[in-house]
Amino acid sequence: MRPRTIRRLRFWSQLVIAFSLLFIVIVEYGRPFAVSWYYQDEYSKLALECDQSMHDEAALRAGTSGAAKDPALEVSGMVGLAVCHQYDVLRKRMLINGVSEERLALIGLKGLENEQIPVNRMVDPHRMDRF
């Protein structure tokens, strides 16, 4: 091979390796960081709202309030649970973008503040049997 070709090859291969490393750094570290930074407020807000709507729904289903067990009230509770769906969608998207479970749990807890249960355990069944 001509020395010139070798020099070129070396240059290009170094460039390709450098970019690949950069790509890995951005995708593995930069992206999750950017995504969790950008969506953390929304995420913890949805986590809190979902938590609240689950409490409401469980209460309405049990009919323990002063209001008689009212089918329309139960429906409103179910509609209210839809924020848990939004929460779930955001959660899955954040996971796909490399945000770790642990980081998500932390953001969620920040929203719930004094709740000591990890968010995923509360949310996965979408409803609770206690309130």
Binding site: L22, R31, A34, V35, A72, V75, R93, N97
Partner: peptide, 29 residues
């Protein structure tokens, strides 16, 4: 670099469309 950044940030959260949920509510009521 620009291409990489774009790839990293695409479609994190698309429009969280409320229509399917609302249509369920409309049916339920």
């Amino acid at each position: 670099l620009a291409a990489l950044l774009a790839a990293a940030s695409t479609s994190v959260v698309a429009e969280n469309s409320l229509d399917p949920i609302l249509h369920k509510a409309i049916q339920a009521y």
